[in-house]
Every structure is written in structure tokens, then in C-alpha cells.
Design a protein around this nucleic acid. Structure first.
Ligand SMILES: [Zn+2]
Ligand SMILES: [Zn+2]
Ligand SMILES: [Zn+2]
Ligand SMILES: [Zn+2]
Lengths: 170, 170
DNA sequence: GGCATACATGATATGGAATAACATGACAAG
DNA sequence: CTTGTCATGTTATTCCATATCATGTATGCC
């Protein structure tokens, strides 16, 4: 794994997921970015953690914790729930992976590097997940929060619907 | 075996939108609206369903399915999971109750009557939940969806943070 | 009335998500 | 070498959710 893969970060900031792309490169570069960021920030991207991130990057879909666990077992890692949840906690806390609350499942971040407040589009037919940016404090919710004095720390924004591919097929 | 761990939120701080209000009346009127709407639309607000709605209206907090189940048992109804989940399905499908994905729990709708796309503010300290309106297709997410041809059918918008009461106490 | 249909309820069993609690191993300071 | 920290591993348990089959109950038609 040369860390020389350049930040070929999908430049259409919005949406990896519903678009064809060079997936090999996509996975490799995301892993490279993760390794580089961990080095910079003194985080330890251990084998289990790296493996989980790699699994999630391979799919552009959300995987449940037990699907992840199955693959960890196959790869020779521990196979008890905490093994997966701890790796996921690390990856989520550090912004490499997001949890999709609607699905109780996890997806690799499509815009690693910068901290951001993600929004997701989830296809209910094929389970594809695309990540966009959300503007949490702006809009109706932000206004309502300011009006009552609620301090927003984090937002969950998830849209459920049908992706372009599945719409086309129908 | 009961799964109730509630730290007894001070009773009279019951709040809709984090504001004090006449809670007796709030519950009664919401039940009346539900009954009237069910009559109009030919829906059957049966005893279990009514009881679950009433429970959720009493709290302005989200209750987990098993907390609901415990109370159903106490009230003499069936105590197996499907009993609660079926009642909840009915109430959610018809807009009387919303599911809070972040908590895997349920809360009574604060704006019954009109169909709407809710947004929630969840206090991570006291677990209070307030409901606001969201503008799903407007804003950054709507734009991203239109850009790729994703058809939004439903959105989950949940903000986590600290409510005015808890901010004040700190 | 007798009967078909739809719908609501009930109970059993199982699967999937998440965490608590405890033990072990690796490793870097001191 | 000892100590503290962090990561991993295992066991056990709890909570969330659904599939399945059985039973009851109302309604409308014959
Ligand atoms: Zn990719
Ligand atoms: Zn699709
Ligand atoms: Zn509502
Ligand atoms: Zn609070």
C-alpha cells in the first residue's frame, strides 16, 4: 500500500454512490487518506479497524454489525460483537465511517478528511447509500432550535427513496 | 424483568417543544383528535392502540418498544413483542406516532391532523423530544437529490443536543 | 341462521443490534 | 522491571424486531 495515491477524492463533493467510478482507486485512495490522517493525528489504524474500513469501502452500501462480524470471522479476527462494535466506534468517532440510523448499519464516509455533517440518500430497493452534505443549523430546524433555545450538537439527516438506477429499471 | 429504568423526570416539567403547557388538556385533546380522525377515515382505534397512544402522549419523551410492552402488561393486555409492535405500526402508519430512529424508540406526534414531515430535537441529557417541521426537499439535500435523480419519499431529520432546561441547569 | 372474509389479537420462537463485565496481550514510559 | 494505557478477546445479557401459526371477532352475503 504505497501512500502515494493522490487525493483523487471524488471531486463532485456530493455523491459517490449512485455514480459509476473507478472503484479500485476509490477504495485505495480512501484507505490512503485514512492512514495518512491517522499518522498525523496519532490514531492507531490497527488491523481489525483497517479491515472493517476496507470492507465498508468495498461496498457503497450500509452493512449491519453482524454482517461485518461474519467477515471478520472469515478473515481470522475475533467474532464476538464487541470486536466489531469497537472497531466501528473508532471509525465513527474519527469520521471514517458513518452510522445510518434508519438501517442500524454502517457505511464508509465518502468525503474523508474534512469534518462534516453528512446527509444520506438511501435506496429502499437496492440499498445503495449516497452521501451528501447537510446544512444542519440552516433551514427550518435550525430556526426552530434557536427559537426555543435548543443547542444542536449533531444532526441525523437521512432521505429514503429510490435511486436513479432503480427508477430507470421501473 | 421489567425494562423501565426511568430516572423519574420531574412530573410537572412535561413539555411540548420544551415549553410548559397544560398537559392534561394536551393529552385529552390529542386523543380526541385521534378518535375523530379514525372515525372519519374508517380506522379502528382499538383498546390496545388507544392505550399505547395515551402512554406516549403522557410523556413527551420517546419510549422503547419494551417499555411500552411493560405498561401494556400492567394494563392487562398481551405482553409479547408483536402486541406492541402492531399497535405502534398502526399509530406510525397513520401519523399519530413517530419513530425516533436515533433512539429506536417512539414518540407521540405533536401536530396530529395534518400529514407532515417531522423533525426532532432530542436532549441527550434528559431525553426530552420536541417535534418541529422539516422541509425535506428544500435545502442542500433536496438539491443533491435532484442533481442525481434520487426520488425522496421520506426523510429522517433528528437533531441531538441539549434542551433549554438542561442548558440552564448547567 | 350459517358461512366466507377481513382484520385484530395472542403466543411461540428466532434473529439481529448493542452493551456490560471481565481477562489477556502489546507496548511505551518511568 | 513495573506500571499505566490501549487494543483485543470472550462470556453473558439486554434490548429491538419480525416470522409464523393459532384464535377470536366483526361484517356482509347466501
Ligand atoms: Zn467507490
Ligand atoms: Zn436503487
Ligand atoms: Zn408529527
Ligand atoms: Zn434536557
Amino acid at each position: 500500500m504505497t501512500s502515494e495515491t493522490t487525493p483523487a477524492l471524488a471531486e463532485d463533493t456530493a455523491l459517490v454512490g449512485f455514480q459509476e467510478h473507478d472503484h479500485e482507486n476509490c477504495v485505495d485512495s480512501a484507505l490512503a487518506i485514512a492512514e495518512s490522517r491517522c499518522k498525523d493525528e496519532g490514531l492507531r489504524l490497527t488491523p481489525v479497524r483497517r479491515k472493517v474500513l476496507e470492507m465498508l469501502l468495498q461496498e457503497h452500501r450500509a452493512l449491519g454489525a453482524y454482517a461485518i462480524l461474519d467477515r471478520l470471522r472469515e478473515a481470522g479476527f475475533g467474532s464476538q460483537p464487541p470486536v466489531a462494535y469497537r472497531a466501528l466506534d473508532f471509525l465513527v468517532d474519527n469520521g471514517f465511517v458513518h452510522k445510518i440510523e434508519r438501517l442500524n448499519a454502517f457505511v464508509a464516509c465518502a468525503h474523508p478528511g474534512a469534518t462534516h455533517s453528512p446527509a444520506f440518500m438511501i435506496c429502499r430497493k437496492c440499498d445503495a447509500v449516497a452521501e451528501a452534505h447537510s446544512a444542519p443549523a440552516k433551514g427550518a430546524l435550525g430556526a426552530a432550535a434557536r427559537a426555543v433555545g435548543f443547542e444542536i450538537e449533531r444532526t441525523v439527516v437521512e432521505a429514503e427513496g429510490v435511486c436513479p438506477d432503480c427508477t430507470e429499471k421501473a
